[in-house]
Design a protein around this nucleic acid. Sequence first.
DNA 1: TACTGGTATGAATCGGATA
DNA 2: GTATCCGATTCATACCAGT
Lengths: 248, 248
Amino acid sequence: MTYTLHRGDALTVLKSLPDESVNAVITDPPYNSGGRASADRTGRTARAKYVTSNSAHDLADFPGENRDQRSYRSWLTELLTEAYRASTEHAVAVVFSDWRQEPTTSDALQMAGWTWSGTIPWIKPASRPRKGGFKQSAEFITWGVKGSLDRTRDLYLPGHFIASQPRKGRVHITQKPVEVMQQLVQICPEGGTVLDPFTGSGSTGVAALREGRRFVGIELSSHYADVAEQRLRAELTKDDFDLAGPEA
Amino acid sequence: MTYTLHRGDALTVLKSLPDESVNAVITDPPYNSGGRASADRTGRTARAKYVTSNSAHDLADFPGENRDQRSYRSWLTELLTEAYRASTEHAVAVVFSDWRQEPTTSDALQMAGWTWSGTIPWIKPASRPRKGGFKQSAEFITWGVKGSLDRTRDLYLPGHFIASQPRKGRVHITQKPVEVMQQLVQICPEGGTVLDPFTGSGSTGVAALREGRRFVGIELSSHYADVAEQRLRAELTKDDFDLAGPEA
DNA sequence: TACTGGTATGAATCGGATA
DNA sequence: GTATCCGATTCATACCAGT
């Protein structure tokens, strides 16, 4: 399997992709969430919003956490519109969000032309408690189809995920568990192409390669583009190693 | 503990409730979901939408399943507005929905004045698989506060639930597991009053009584009002029995 | 290997001080 | 007042070291 990693702004690069060139879009955009007032959400960095002040780790910040509610919706809509154009018939879009952005995400998905087909909770067992109320232990995966689902495939995917955020060897604040991503990429037909306009540390790509799908990624931050490049290359090397065996 | 069960239309009865008389609103309104087109949703009864055509059980139909998307939103908004009026400061509203109605539900909750504070997935492990895609195994519990959360309470509630729908002894199509409801009613202070404008078979009430909360219910269908009445009365009797012990 | 005990942390949240 | 910023808080879970 192969991958392509574009360095640059998601929307700009998306516009340069040819029509009907990908078979699934799986991505985790910056949520632009957190905080009560608009200024809290737009005026602080991802680290300031999402990382406990006394955390020992020193993971790099990531860009794009400065949009207010309205511009978040139109921005996401335009992104998903371009992704729709670049997708084949029966392609599926899979978009992460938190509870606050889930309604906006399903709006944007539909405005971009996709047929909203469901919302899948991802349960994170290790999450902060909240005194006096219900804690927030889930993220949401909104998915939709271009046209109709391909019902000829003998594919049955779960309706929820329970998995902890990576802790050991974590390289990104919002890194997703590869085992979850490996399930998600199966929505793309084998040998097809998975697109992730917010590659980050590249978990979607790693999962795609492991499951025998091609990968096209876009990442703005040069730091994370480097990280993703390394992880993806390592994945290919590991493949060769696995195929050849340790004796080769 | 005591309960009051009103028979009649939810909105009409709600308007007759005194201001600031309840401490939590926990309810499962008719979802008005199901079909893709408006005609699919409004033209069929609840049984036709939610029950596999050859199902063996013979549960009664329930009313209120004939609103399109827009009128559902305004109807729910008006309901939650009245519920808000009838609630005390720091009261919490807890509203079930499916993935399709979750955005509308959080809209209505906020339009009614509540501060939306989160969305909790309820995972139903035994759900039908879906060929070619992700199955739908979750419902969503949208919750919000009148004013601010009471953070003086030593209360830490879960951020998700995993429980199968009652199978044995089920009396309502959309009956909720009492163990889930028993967790939810804890958002109401002990000895306080829980309101459920769509009582159905009365699971919210049963849970409230078990957890030492008063209950005020409203149910339109006389069939289900009878069912709820019986379950609630049985719960009180069982209480007496438990207190006195089998030898008394 | 299986278990135990110690420790660090989470796509937060909120009250209250400061500007 | 209003907007912004600072930092205390909370516990189930995951990881690690040691037996």
